[in-house]
Nucleic acid binder design. Sequence first.
DNA 1: TGATAGAATCACGCTGTCGTGATGTCGTTG
DNA 2: CAACGACATCACGACAGCGTGATTCTATCA
Lengths: 101, 101
Amino acid sequence: MEALADYFKVFSEPNRLAVLDALRQGPLNVTAVVEHTGLSQALVSKHLKLLTIAGVVKRRPEGSLVFYEVIDRAVFKLLAQAEKQLLAARRQQLDALAAIL
Amino acid sequence: MEALADYFKVFSEPNRLAVLDALRQGPLNVTAVVEHTGLSQALVSKHLKLLTIAGVVKRRPEGSLVFYEVIDRAVFKLLAQAEKQLLAARRQQLDALAAIL
DNA sequence: TGATAGAATCACGCTGTCGTGATGTCGTTG
DNA sequence: CAACGACATCACGACAGCGTGATTCTATCA
């Protein structure tokens, strides 16, 4: 339960989701992620480290570059399902509001 | 993306997950949730309010009591899938460790 | 209406995490 | 070996969210 909360925490940061989204189409090195997201290099490194520790992403040094890659693409399924739930929740809130007005 | 991160944030708290878990078997009033979770009344109220604002839970006053109920039980599917992903990530980490040793 | 129980809210201290600028480390290339 | 680029880490200020104890609000019932 504690662990599950921590796992959700991994995806509870907009910038981290942006980093993850940059890796959607395949492996990228750090600089490429920086360019894709517009975030600072230090911040991207930090988020990538977190994602690595969480076991979501895999680190692969290649020469002087370091590539990162999503280990299990099923995480995107999780993101999609969460987004679906989010939309359903939003819709329900509007319905509840309409029922009052 | 920002909204999605906020949605994940809802489930990134152990106590909030505990509250949600108490509501798994059906509607409960606040005191019942307090007893199920062992949390303080103020804290339970706070979490229930958050869950309500997030559109995950529905508030229904009944006499002097206030019952809370999960709106869309599909959230439990989301929790289950997240837990599955979590386990997969943990397994992968062990494999990576074994590959080194 | 006064008393009581259930629920919500307030004020506050505290901790964790985020983002940044600077610095450190590592590998390549001249 | 010196210099440079890529990446990681550090130290720090800022801020948001958690949990608590006390208080307030609301509905029921004597």
